[in-house]
Structure formats: structure tokens, C-alpha cells
């Protein structure tokens, strides 16, 4: 491996990392927002909208991100929705992640035993107290491991963005291999940069899982 080559590649990978992280976290933030809204629609059984939410979840959970991105990036402009590659990446990640987050949060809410709700109501708590201090904390603690897994999954999924010509880590590596044929160096840096991006999240995730593990009562 040539250290000179590695050094000359570093700035390119660094720029790509920043782009990947930015799109990744914006997409994940969008995924959380979509997930919370969708799971609320399902949990409170809002008429019509909960059916729409169900269709959305099934559609996006059962298709690959790459196909979703192709559809949004190349297909939708035909209908007049022109989105930039970056916006398309964020939207794709948000839509895919939203369906996963919705399932996770909903199953967390469903896991809270009915006796908890009934006891809270029997104690004279109002709807807000019931939801805010009884149901949500317990639902959150059961869904934390799955939420962490979702976040890591979504950050990994950012690797397909190169297909819609975003200059992410994957794109940079592929480009450099094509230009200079320094395959070993480019792949080595690719791995290192993914480790830099994901290992801290993985470690922080296990830490949060330990902290958030309350007991489920009832």
C-alpha cells in the first residue's frame, strides 16, 4: 500500500464523509418524524389516514432503497417533480426509514400492557398524563434497541446514494478506482471511513440501550 497515495486521497474521502453524514442524519431525522406521525396514526386508529399509513409502511418496507431512489430520482421528474440529488437522497432515506421507525414505535406502544392504561385511568389521570408519563416512557424503553438498529441500518443504506450520482464515500472510492486503479488504497480508505462513521454510533447505541432498559410492569 502506498502511503503517498493514501495521503493524497484523504481530503477527497473527508469531503465525501461530510456529505454522507449530512445526508444520513437529515434523512434519519426525517425518518423519525415520519415514523412518529405514522405510528401515532396507527395507534390512535385515525380513520382513513391509518389505512394510508398501513399501505405506506408495507410499500416501503418491502422494496429496496436503491429502487425507491431510482423511482424518485428518475421516475418522478416525468410527472414534474424535479428534486436535486441531495434532496432525493434525504427523501428516500426518510421514506424508507419512516416505515421502519413506524413499525418499531408502534410495536413499542402495543407492548405496553392494557392494565397500565386502565390503572392510570382508575387513578384519575387525564389523557395527557396517561400518554406522557405512563405509556410513552415504557414504549420508548422497549423500542430503543430496535430504534438503534434502525439508525445503524439507515446509515449503512447511505452507501447506495452513489447510484444517483451523489459524491458520497462509495462514489469517491469507485471514481478513484476507475481513474487511477489504486484499488487497494481506495478500498482501505473506504473501510476506514465507514468505521469512523459507524463505530461511534454502534458503541453509543449499546450504551443508550443499557441506560434505557427500564422494567415493563404489569
Amino acid at each position: 500500500m502506498d502511503t503517498e497515495v493514501l495521503r493524497s486521497y484523504l481530503p477527497l474521502f473527508w469531503e465525501a464523509l461530510i456529505l454522507t453524514v449530512r445526508i444520513g442524519w437529515l434523512g434519519i431525522a426525517l425518518a423519525f418524524a415520519i415514523g412518529i406521525i405514522t405510528s401515532a396514526l396507527l395507534h390512535f386508529k385515525v380513520p382513513v389516514l391509518s389505512a394510508v399509513a398501513k399501505v405506506y409502511i408495507e410499500l416501503f418496507r418491502n422494496t429496496p432503497l436503491l429502487v425507491q431512489l431510482f423511482f424518485i430520482y428518475y421516475g418522478l421528474p416525468v410527472l414534474g417533480f424535479q428534486v436535486s440529488a441531495e434532496g432525493c437522497g434525504i427523501a428516500g432515506l426518510g421514506l424508507l426509514g419512516g416505515s421502519y421507525m413506524a413499525e418499531t414505535i408502534r410495536s413499542g406502544l402495543d407492548a405496553v400492557p392494557l392494565s397500565q392504561t386502565e390503572s392510570a385511568l382508575a387513578l384519575g389521570m387525564n389523557k395527557r398524563q396517561l400518554f406522557g408519563s405512563i405509556v410513552l416512557p415504557q414504549a420508548f424503553s422497549t423500542s430503543v434497541p430496535a430504534l438503534v438498529a434502525n439508525v445503524i441500518f439507515l446509515l449503512k443504506e447511505t452507501s447506495v446514494f452513489s447510484a444517483i450520482s451523489l459524491m458520497d464515500l462509495m462514489f469517491t472510492a469507485k471514481d478513484l478506482i476507475g481513474l487511477y486503479y489504486d484499488t487497494t488504497e481506495a478500498l482501505f480508505l473506504l473501510v476506514i471511513f465507514y468505521v469512523i462513521m459507524l463505530l461511534p454510533v454502534s458503541i453509543a447505541g449499546s450504551f443508550i440501550e443499557k441506560k434505557a432498559r427500564f422494567r415493563i410492569f404489569g
Binding site: K156, E157, L190, V191, Y194, S202
Partner: peptide, 8 residues
């Protein structure tokens, strides 16, 4: 496997 994207 957990942290390396399959694409990599």
C-alpha cells in the same frame, strides 16, 4: 457485518 455496508 453490523457496521460495514453490504455495498462496501
Amino acid at each position: 457485518v453490523r457496521i460495514m455496508p453490504q455495498m462496501v
